[in-house]
Design a protein around this nucleic acid. Sequence first.
DNA 1: CGGCTAATGTAAAAGCCATTAACATGAGCT
DNA 2: AGCTCATGTTAATGGCTTTTACATTAGCCG
Lengths: 224, 224
Amino acid sequence: MSWSKHERGGAEGAGGPRGYHHGNLKEALLRAALELIAQKGPAGFTFAEAARWAGVSPAAPYRHFRDRDELLANVALRGFERFEVVLKRAWDDGRPDALAALDRLGKAYMEFARTEPAYYSAMFEAGIPLSTSAELREAGERAFAVLRGAAEKLCAQMPAAKRPPALMVALHIWSLSHGVASLFGRGDAARRTLPMSAEELLEAGVLVYLRGLGLSAAGDRPPG
Amino acid sequence: MSWSKHERGGAEGAGGPRGYHHGNLKEALLRAALELIAQKGPAGFTFAEAARWAGVSPAAPYRHFRDRDELLANVALRGFERFEVVLKRAWDDGRPDALAALDRLGKAYMEFARTEPAYYSAMFEAGIPLSTSAELREAGERAFAVLRGAAEKLCAQMPAAKRPPALMVALHIWSLSHGVASLFGRGDAARRTLPMSAEELLEAGVLVYLRGLGLSAAGDRPPG
DNA sequence: CGGCTAATGTAAAAGCCATTAACATGAGCT
DNA sequence: AGCTCATGTTAATGGCTTTTACATTAGCCG
């Protein structure tokens, strides 16, 4: 194992590099970007400041990312990967039943948006075209696939005659989740004062929606 | 009427100013910003280029806007005002009945997002804190008030016992609309290939949701 | 009409950022 | 030990933002 090189930068925080070579600059830049995006939004983040944060010259990042956008795209990529993990864990293959699991899924969605606003905005609000890289698109697809799988399990337990297309259900739930997260999910600036938390709002909305689909177990009274 | 001054800049397109003074620079800058945001997104838009587009020096805009963000906020403000008009017209006080009017409202929402992407992104995706100015916040409230009024009319025609809070309904519909618009509503880059248009997706989602609320007239079969 | 003043523009400069090109260092392999 | 390539640095270019000092002129007042 090559200790002398790889131990550095990996767990060193903002300590800074020792020698001429940083040792783990790519990773350090990704982390710096994440931190800066969290502080000032995807627009406020600058390549040069990430370099500074990592303790290298402004030109160094170009050895690892073609340009600023590619770094942003890499943050988004990593975000989608983490998002998929989080959603998968919450869904847990629909155990113990699809409705309980879907409820966890919604909470996990909102929690991700709330606790990882930098990832979330890089993924959805930074204006990165998904066509940037196949990897990015596929990571996005995999995250969405979790939602889609959940929709399929839900639809499967409905009588075939009144069964809606699972893809449509997945898109509806995703849209509602993203809308709530995007409009009300983050702590500070753009928030409107709500009579309920974003999590509750989403949960209530999904319940109403599912009832509309005919899932009788889903909240038989209107929430309020 | 002061022809000699005000005719200029107002309808002159990119013709450029004639004398030392532009005559209607503020308006020209707002329009330039709108055009540039439409082309390159709120992040790609630059103050200097708007000035160039209006035919003035890079410092001139500072006579009308404190900084770049204030210009952006003014675009968003104007966007909310237009949005309110569009939504109000579509809602038309709920004529001939609330469901038909709500359907028009959803279509108008999506059409605004689609045909005025620059306004839409300035309003919702540019990261402008609503606290920027009271005017901005109030304009946003007025636009939302249309949705809220629609939700109230819908709820009013439900039996009081199973009547959900109108505010919650408005927030749900808004979130779903914004989610659909934001994820699938704009033409080119970030779009995913869908089995249906964004308008259809939203309409179907709202119908399911309303059915979940117990509005029996709302789509008695699951859409597909 | 003639002149004052405030509004509106311009020019120039400082400071930051992105990006590139030429050069430097040293890690890892042979 | 020496080679070579990955990884950094320095320096330079060009653009953007914002400020300061100065220029022009529109509108008003006598």
